[in-house]
């Protein structure tokens, strides 16, 4: 579903992403880990077509993001970091706008997709509230609803559980797990337990390079008995 081939991105003289390659299949939930500034978000932004890679490319459902970004964008749902949204719109208006740009032009298909997204993310109680008045947890869910709305085969989620309380985190994880059976999901996170809880694969990226690409159980087996964050630390600090 997602094929990432040698992505490179420079910011000035800094090589933020340095030849990242991996593939994600249908049914996979890929946990994307790494210290802050390792290039996680930049890699994700290149897969979504928001940033243009300096070299390499990504294929989403067979479409090359550098050649046909619009085809890629219509096949993926993306939750950007901190879930930006047009704050002056109500939840309903905002999702209606997303539905319309996603090609649901008749009012019936539009409202059925909006209702589905509202239901999946349990946003119904705040549907008529403007987004700027919502709490962080609800804002995050609005971002989630927007990404899920068109039922895309590929989901890219940049820190989907960031800023949520433990109950909400649990809900979001269950939701991702349920959705992932017929989708390819890439999610970035700082929470190592999250990877164990829901991911079928883990990639650790450090200084723009992939240093680990394996299953969570293989990852744990690297240092049996050690805490996950200890393994993470030894992998991401050794190169400095």
């Amino acid at each position: 579903m997602i094929e990432v081939k040698g992505l490179v991105k420079h910011y000035g003289s800094k090589r933020a992403v340095d030849g990242v390659s991996f593939t994600v299949n249908r049914g996979d939930i890929l946990g994307f880990l790494g210290p802050n500034g390792a290039g996680k978000s930049t890699t994700m932004k290149m897969i979504t077509g928001f940033l243009r890679p300096d070299a390499g490319t990504a294929l989403v459902d067979g479409h090359d993001v550098t050649r046909d970004p619009v085809a890629v964008k219509s096949r993926l749902g993306y939750l950007p970091e901190s879930a930006p949204a047009y704050g002056e719109m109500t939840v309903e208006e905002f999702l209606g706008f997303i539905a319309e740009t996603r090609g649901f032009r008749t009012s019936e298909t539009r409202s059925s997709h909006v209702e589905r997204a509202l239901g999946l993310t349990q946003l119904a109680p705040v549907r008529t509230q403007t987004i700027e008045t919502l709490s962080k947890g609800y804002k995050q869910r609005v971002g989630f609803a927007q990404a899920l709305l068109h039922n895309p085969p590929v989901l890219i989620l940049d820190e989907p559980t960031d800023g949520l309380d433990p109950n909400q985190k649990n809900e979001v994880r269950t939701l991702i797990k349920n959705l992932a059976t017929e989708k390819a999901v890439v999610l970035s996170t700082h929470i190592l337990e999250e990877v164990e809880a829901i991911c079928t694969r883990v990639i650790i990226i450090s200084q723009g390079k992939v240093v680990v690409d394996e299953t969570p159980s293989q990852f744990r087996a690297r240092q049996p008995g050690a805490r996950l964050d200890a393994i993470f630390r030894s992998l991401t600090t050794s190169s400095e």
Partner: peptide
């Protein structure tokens, strides 16, 4: 500033 540009340009729009 608000980051919605990321949202706008990941919608299927040129």
């Amino acid at each position: 500033r608000t980051g919605t540009i990321e949202l706008l340009f990941t919608l299927p729009i040129t």
